[in-house]
Design a protein around this nucleic acid. Structure first.
Length: 592
DNA sequence: GCCGTTTTCGGCCCGACTGTTTTCAGTCG
């Protein structure tokens, strides 16, 4: 069972308890546990084997023991008992927006939706026959809403989360639009977009204004609107024709700081922050801070978000850190990291050029000179050309050597050219080498000396056992020329999850042997993922943020990799390509 | 069911909106 599946299971248990009218705090405990499992990068089964399930916050003796049974026997008697007494279809209906446990149960019970795989289909039929409106507590509107939700589900609209640059574009278009309304004083995109998460579900916008109605009216008449889902006095939600959902909140300027705080989230961070504040006798909301237990206590307002945190005795917590882990504790103890910035980056060590070396994977489109000029524009001091290795199946070893020798000569020539001297961008001679399924590198022995260093990467045979994949990666890293493991997990957002490997073992090896993990800035990859980056950092591993550019404009995408590093709590010192040329050469070039 | 810088017992984030009622439950972020 994956962490995600365990999260789903506990969410279902929470829903079942809700239907049964259990103590609401028990329900919350299961919801918290579900969230905690979804957001951890630790392998739960491994944690269970070590008997440390309770080391995760929100997991106590009860849930840990039920889960132990699940790991051991495949299911827990207690969980089965709770779930089995309810119609199976109920848990499918929960996937529809606007339908919670109570509603799902009512519908599933009344219409006997006992089969999970057909429940949505059946409910759709029932709704279109006008049967739902006849139930007490339901009406025409709720029936229509259910029908629409099922239709959306079928089209899988909004099912996929947006990649960060896509969400930025959607948000920017709306910000530009809202700016035309003079009643909008300040506009900001918040939520996971501001926290720079790898993928974004909904776009959240905050506006400060003393005429909220005008703002809401402008917002809901956005030309791309397909449906106005919510329209209140201070908030609204629209669904766009492209399937995206946008949330808007409006407050007066004096409260804008607390709104930024509230609407940036994450939910887990806000809950933790509010619990922390409660203990100090304060109650937090998007409007400000109130003293507890005093009737009609005055609201303290914050136009500035930093002051909101400082008021609570905390250092300012940057949005990228607000995931409800231990950032509040760290802020209290002045232990927050000084996060790496884009301007700290001095070079990009994974760039594909247009030099033709008969690669098996795609080559780049830019020349060395173009890459050098672009790097200079970005303020870099060095780059590494890391084309894919020549295909080993169609080229002889001699041919491969000749191609790579020709390529090295071109790079040497560039480094000795007047162009280089003017721009002062040094080009390392590297290569992105396939790690073959047996762990060997796809490069003839005689060619290794042609490189300053190598970047190793898995591009084939993803479906291996965890043990085999770990061994495969480790044996590739063992080669003294290999310094960097590119896009370590192989994930492609919205397409495939990464392959499984014993990351702790790999991290320990990297730390001990001075190998570096790439944080790949390509928005579809963002790999190493943030959670793993934080775990690796905890073990003392260092990183290199690379764009993996295949075209010149891709070199501008470095910031997405820096976001990942920041979400992984990385400081400048954790990132090797913040060093100057002399220092980084010491890290990467070995003569052994 | 979980948790501990007032607590191993007695707390547990805070507020908005919708739809169906007629003062509120359910859902959401």
């Amino acid at each position: 069972m994956t962490n995600e599946e365990i999260g789903d299971l506990l969410e279902d248990i929470a829903a079942a308890y809700e239907v049964k009218g259990a103590n609401r705090f028990r329900i919350m405990a299961y919801q918290n546990a579900s969230e905690a499992f979804r957001h951890t990068s630790v392998d739960l089964k491994k944690l269970w084997q070590e008997g440390k399930l309770e080391s995760i916050g929100g997991i106590g003796p009860s849930i840990a023991s039920h889960l132990s049974e699940v790991f051991e026997k495949g299911e827990s008697k207690h969980f089965q008992k709770i779930i089995k007494s309810l119609p199976e279809g109920m848990f499918e209906l929960l996937k529809l927006p606007g339908i919670g446990p109570k509603t799902a149960y009512k519908l599933a019970k009344r219409f006997k939706l006992n089969n999970a795989s057909t429940a949505l289909l059946e409910l759709g039929k029932i709704a279109s026959q006008g049967e739902i409106r006849k139930l007490s507590g339901f009406g025409e509107k709720s029936e229509k809403k259910i029908l629409e939700a099922i239709e959306d589900q079928k089209e899988k609209k909004g099912g996929k989360r947006m990649l960060l640059p896509v969400a930025e574009e959607v948000a920017q278009a709306l910000v530009d639009y809202l700016k035309k309304e003079p009643a909008c004083k300040k506009i900001e995109a918040l939520g996971s977009l501001r926290r720079k998460a790898a993928t974004i579900g909904d776009v959240d916008l905050a506006v400060s204004s003393n005429k909220p109605k005008k703002v809401i009216d402008k917002f809901t008449s956005y030309p791309e609107v397909k449906k106005i889902a919510v329209k209140g006095e201070g908030t609204a939600r629209i669904n766009l024709r492209n399937g995206r959902q946008i949330d808007l909140k409006v407050v007066e300027l004096a409260c804008f700081g607390s709104l930024l705080q509230h609407f940036t989230g994450s939910k887990a961070h806000n809950i933790a922050l509010r619990e922390y504040a409660l203990k100090k006798g304060w109650s937090l909301s998007e409007y400000g801070i109130k003293k507890l237990k005093t009737q009609k206590s005055k609201l303290i307002k914050f136009s500035d978000e930093e002051k909101f945190y400082r008021f609570l005795g905390l250092d300012y917590i940057l949005p990228e850190l607000r995931e409800g882990e231990d950032e509040i504790e760290s802020a209290k103890n002045h232990k927050l990291p000084n996060l790496v910035k884009l301007s700290d980056i001095k070079g990009d060590l994974h760039i594909h050029s247009n030099i033709d070396i008969a690669t098996s994977h795609d080559k780049g489109s830019a020349s060395l000179e173009q890459i050098g000029r672009k790097a200079a524009e970005l303020g870099y001091r060095y780059v590494a050309i890391a084309d894919h290795n020549p295909a080993t199946t169609t080229n002889s070893e001699k041919k491969i050597f000749n191609l790579l020798e020709m390529r090295k000569a071109k790079i040497d020539k560039y480094n000795n050219s007047s162009e280089k001297r003017e721009k002062s961008v040094y080009i390392f001679c590297s290569l992105e080498v396939d790690i073959k399924p047996d762990g060997s590198l796809a490069l003839p022995k005689m060619a290794f000396d042609l490189f300053d260093f190598l970047i190793a990467a898995v591009h084939t045979s993803f479906n291996m056992s965890k043990k085999k994949m770990t061994k495969r990666i480790l044996s590739a890293l063992k080669h003294p020329k290999v310094k960097i493991l590119a896009h370590p997990t192989g994930r492609m957002l919205n397409r495939r999850s990464g392959y499984e490997a014993d990351w702790d073992k790999i991290f320990e090896y990297c730390k001990k042997n001075k190998k570096f993990l790439e944080i790949n800035a390509w928005p579809l990859r963002l790999d190493l993922p943030d959670l793993l980056a934080r775990r690796a950092r905890g073990k003392g591993v260092k990183f290199i943020v690379n764009t993996d550019s295949h075209e010149l404009p891709h070199m501008d995408l470095m910031r997405y990799g820096v976001y990942v590093a920041r979400r992984g709590w990385c400081e400048k010192s954790d990132i090797i390509n913040t060093r100057n040329l002399k220092e980084i050469s010491k890290y990467l070039i070995s003569n052994t």
